[in-house]
C-alpha cells in the first residue's frame, strides 16, 4: 500500500517534470505548471500532510536543479502553496469546478511568490520574463488541467474509485 502510493506519486512527479521541461518548456501559449499542480492536488488525497509537503519541496527542488534559477526558490514556493492547499482544501471539495478554480488561485499565488522571492534574490531577469502573461496564462492552464485530471489523480493515488465523485 505504502510502497505503491509512493511509486505512483514518484512516477507522477517524474513524468510531470519531464513534460514540464520539454513540451511545456517549448510552448509559449499553453503553459501549465504541472509540478506545482501535483503539490496542490496531493492535498486532496489521503496522503499524510508531511508527505505532501515533502513531495512539493522535492519536486520544486528538482525543477530548481534543472533550471538556472536559485536552488530552493521553487522548493520554497511549491511547499508554501502545498501548505495553503492543505489548509484550504475543505473549501474546494464542492465540485469539479471549485477544485479547478481553487487550483488556479493557488497557482496564481505560486507564480506571484516565484516572481516576488526571485526578485528579492536578484533573479528577476530569469523568472520575470513575460511576468504579466505568465501570471495570467499559467493559472488559467492549471485551472483547465485540474478540471480534467484532478479526480483521476486523486482516485489513482488513493486507490479509491469513489473519490471526488459529485452529483
Amino acid at each position: 500500500m505504502r510502497g505503491r502510493t509512493a511509486l505512483v506519486i514518484g512516477l507522477t512527479v517524474v513524468i510531470a517534470v519531464v513534460i514540464q521541461t520539454t513540451l511545456f518548456g517549448r510552448l509559449r501559449v499553453v503553459t501549465p505548471d504541472l509540478v506545482m499542480l501535483i503539490g496542490i492536488l496531493l492535498a486532496l488525497t489521503r496522503v499524510r500532510t508531511e508527505a505532501v509537503l515533502a513531495v512539493a519541496f522535492l519536486s520544486g527542488l528538482i525543477m530548481d536543479l534543472l533550471g538556472a534559477s536559485l536552488i530552493g526558490l521553487r522548493a520554497v514556493v511549491y511547499t508554501t502553496v502545498a501548505y495553503i492547499a492543505i489548509r484550504t482544501k475543505e473549501r474546494a471539495e464542492l465540485g469539479r469546478v471549485t477544485i479547478a478554480l481553487w487550483a488556479g488561485l493557488l497557482t496564481l499565488l505560486g507564480v506571484v511568490l516565484i516572481l516576488l522571492i526571485g526578485t528579492l534574490f536578484g533573479q528577476a531577469a530569469l523568472v520575470g520574463e513575460g511576468a504579466v502573461s505568465v501570471m495570467i496564462l499559467v493559472p488559467l492552464a492549471n485551472v483547465a488541467v485540474a478540471a480534467l485530471l484532478a479526480p483521476t489523480f486523486v482516485r489513482l493515488v488513493d486507490r479509491d474509485r469513489t473519490a471526488l465523485r459529485y452529483p
Partner: peptide
C-alpha cells in the same frame, strides 16, 4: 535544445 526551465535552455 530539448527543453527549458524559466528562461534557461536545456
Amino acid at each position: 535544445v530539448i527543453g527549458s526551465v524559466d528562461a534557461a535552455l536545456i
